[in-house]
């Protein structure tokens, strides 16, 4: 049995699956990174993923085009985030409460609307989906070809987005402004940075990323929407973001680690190896608690995370 487990762990197809499965989690993690770097705690990632998945499927169903579906998913994720940012930034709603509200609202709206659209509460009919692509030269290279040679286009776009997000956050003036807003909004304001704009921008960008990740879930892979299909991936993204130190690339690394454990677990389950799979599924959450408690590396969230800021200090 141990040989079989090792064979699964060091299998390139497991790695291929892990990269694919990390897509929505890494995108949610980056959404969380932008939001939290600008000082807004974002528990609503889960709901934004779910809305993206639903809108992606509806768009694809209505237009027959998976590309248009994906765009609608991105737009819907951004719109959900816009509601969240208006309430948290303009109306100074408690970030955590508003985030919980977004999650419940997203679950209710998507479950309700799927019955309005498809007359079913469970799983939608098949809709147009984005097919996997084979990269001509890379797919012929041994090892690398097996890992990323044939993948969903979402995976490649995700990797590009993560790299782009990292550049934006750490190598551009806008990124510096975002980070400054989350660390010290008063100082940012003094320097003429529009703190409110930066917060809205970061949260909505995060929502668009979640929308894209959600669209992957519904039309990037199986081509259907199912009730509550985000299934905790937003919370996993939240964990990956912390694990990855509020850095998109770190978040991707953490997401791949989590997904790898998950992929191994799923493959072992199909081989009917009686490993306690719930215990393997717990690992990401346990690791995040250990990290947060300062057990492995010291992690420090942005200093003004969760605070409300109003220019001039009045209320």
């Amino acid at each position: 049995m141990w040989l079989e487990i090792l064979a699964v762990i060091f299998n390139l197809r497991t790695l291929n699956a892990a990269i694919r499965m990390s897509t929505p989690i890494a995108l949610a993690a980056m959404g969380g990174a932008f939001s939290e770097r600008a000082g807004v705690i974002n528990i609503g990632l889960e709901g934004m993923l779910l809305v993206g998945a639903f809108a992606g499927a509806v768009g694809s169903y209505a237009t027959g085009s998976a590309l248009l579906g994906t765009l609608l998913g991105v737009a819907a994720g951004a719109a959900t985030a816009a509601v969240f940012s208006i309430f948290t930034v303009e109306f100074r709603a408690n970030h955590v409460v508003a985030g919980v509200g977004i999650n419940i609202l997203a679950l209710g709206l998507t479950t309700w609307l799927m019955q309005v659209v498809w007359r079913t509460r469970g799983i939608s009919p098949a809709v147009a989906r984005v097919q996997s692509i084979r990269i001509p030269l890379i797919s012929d290279i041994p090892v690398i070809g097996q890992v990323i040679g044939v993948q969903s286009p979402f995976v490649f776009v995700m990797i590009a987005l993560i790299v782009g997000g990292w550049v934006l956050l750490f190598r551009t003036p806008l990124g510096l402004r975002i980070r400054m807003t989350g660390e010290h909004p008063e100082a940012a304001d003094t320097l003429g940075i529009n703190v409110r704009f930066i917060k809205h921008f970061s949260v909505i960008l995060g929502g668009a990323l979640c929308g894209f990740g959600g669209a992957y879930l519904s039309i990037g892979n199986i081509g259907r929407f199912s009730m509550g299909m985000s299934a905790g991936r937003g919370f996993m993204g939240l964990a990956a973001n912390i694990f990855g130190q509020w850095n998109p690339i770190g978040g991707l690394g953490a997401s791949m680690l989590f997904s790898y454990a998950d992929a191994v677990q799923i493959r072992l389950q199909t081989m009917e190896i009686a490993l306690p799979h719930q215990i393997i599924q717990m690992i990401p959450y346990l690791l995040t608690i250990v990290i947060l408690a300062g057990g492995v590396v010291k992690s420090r969230p942005p200093a003004a995370l969760g605070n409300h800021y109003r220019s001039g200090g009045g209320t």
Binding site: R92, V97, A98, G101, L105, A106, G108, L109, W112
Partner: peptide, 14 residues
């Protein structure tokens, strides 16, 4: 009714 719940939370939080 879940939609109503979500809306209530968001509104009452602010």
């Amino acid at each position: 009714t879940i939609v109503v719940q979500g809306l209530v939370i968001i509104l009452v939080a602010a």
